[in-house]
Amino acid sequence: MREFGYERALDVSGAVALLAEDPGARPLGGGTNLVDLMKTGVERPTLLVDVQELPLGDIAFTPDGGLRVGATVTNSDLAAHAEVRRHYPALAQAVLAGASGQLRNMATVGGNLLQRTRCGYFGDISKPCNKRTPGSGCPARAGEHHNHAILGASEHCVATHPSDMAVALAAFDAVISYETSDGPGESAVADFYLPVGETPHLETALPPGALITGVTVPPAAVAARSRYRKVRERASFAFAIGSVAAALDVQDGVVREARLALGAVASRPWRARTAERALTGGPADAEAFAAAADAELAAAEPLADNGYKVTLMRNLVTAVLTELAEEAAR
């Protein structure tokens, strides 16, 4: 049988040492994605470093009033946390929109950020995939791609990032911290996922052997008025075909600040900065919201069967921003 080692790490430095020693080692959180991929042969780690016992399971305020979420906090605990729900409702909603109750009880924040695409070609080792086997080709462009990327993709890969949580984190300027054998490091969520280009197999800015230790969400008053909405092909337990994390500060009918990130449209959570710029200082009405969405989606390059996502995202952005504006007016 395909053998692999298993070590339970008791402290971060021990975990990092184990990961540094063996390039085939992978950290194991809840295992909700990694173990599945091991069963299908997509992932073949030589060593699993179980990080669930590490002291990274807390959610705490930072001195400046932001939140620090440990890497091994489960999705369920994050979504249920009273301060998260109060200050960053879109984050709690995004986490709750993911997977199923059973999976959320197991899945961790670190693992959620590092989960792999659910592209059907990626998950089937009998088929070519540039992300899994660089240079083997991408059958999705000419094949089944109705739930693939419309933004930031390349001819080498059109897969989307599956996380809901990361979309909300992108909207809130969250920063991922990690530890390596050479010391700690950090990366904004917006920069964490690498552009696809010719190297779709290189997915994140995480250095080799690094372990994610947590996520810091900076304080933002606007985040308290935020929302996450996800559209999927069944009512629960499915990945998004389009999602929106949005926060809106409206005063006297004018948008003072807007945060907008889109999910299921790109290889990473798509921070919609073009739309944010278009919104800021403008009227808080549906027409302006739709125009902002159009500005962001002008860069979309849909394939034969995923053009609906342009319409979907335009409608979804408009609807969510309209709801937030209506709430602000109350």
Binding site: D36, R118, G120, Y121, G123, D124, S126, K127, P139, A142, G143, E144
Partner: peptide
């Protein structure tokens, strides 16, 4: 999948 002749969603996910 027309190219390979096989399924692209042969699991319950």
């Amino acid at each position: 999948d027309a190219a390979s002749g096989g399924y692209v969603n042969a699991d319950l996910a």
